[in-house]
Amino acid sequence: MKKIRTIIGKEWADMRRNKLVFYVVVLVPLLMTAIPVVMLAIMGHVGVSQNDMNELGRMLDNPLFVDMSPIEAMQSVMASNMLVLFLIMPLMVPVTIASYSIVGEKISRSLEPLLATPITTTQLLLGKAFAAAAPGVVMTWLSYAVFLVFAYFFSVSTRVFGIFIDPMWLIAMFVLVPLLTVMAVAVGIIVSSRTSDPRAAEQLGSLIILPLMVLYIGAMAGFIMLNSTTFWLSSLITLLLDLGLGYFGVVLFQRETILTRWK
């Protein structure tokens, strides 16, 4: 446990001093929070025609939106679709951190002395994974809180605001987000233990955003209904993926290959 803590402390100290990683960790979530906030503000001030309502089409089938006035419905639909961005956030931040955390050690050649200490592969990877995951989760929750503050002022009615703290979003934030983060970290670690270029690792790792994009586009197009069931189901799938990827992460982390493979 002390060893895991040491790795975490080391990763964070290093992260704070790595400008690139630091900016990604702090700036990306802030920028991504701005999108739904701006959306919400604009939607509250433009008129909504019957035409617009027709365009929303199937999305309005969601029981959450019945009984809402056109403007309320419009605001709720657009903003809650934007909330899917909060699910992408925990993927981007940790992938970046995790990619740098192993490839970075390879480049600075600090991996060899590290692996020479009596630390097990599992301890090392748990430390690195937690160090990468925690900032992702915390930044996502922070961004969600910031969003809620703005949403409180920009929502045309308390009913609209209610949507943003609906149980389905709480499930998304407090169950799905941590699970997604773990998945991102596992992918970042697997990819980066197989390459020696941090950007390549990051880009490859970023591919895991794709399935979420499916959810996002599906929701926008109204094919996928965003509700508690969808999020519970997504959480379950992610959990299974996490277990599988975590196992492979440890198995694929072959000290010898990582140490001696030549560039």
Partner: peptide, 23 residues
């Protein structure tokens, strides 16, 4: 090791503390 492989962004003391804990 053949190359020092230090954590270059961390202080000398911090570098050693990390390894002291790991050992």
């Amino acid at each position: 090791t053949e190359s020092p492989g230090l954590y270059e962004r961390l202080s000398a003391r911090r570098n050693l503390e990390i390894f002291a804990n790991l050992y």
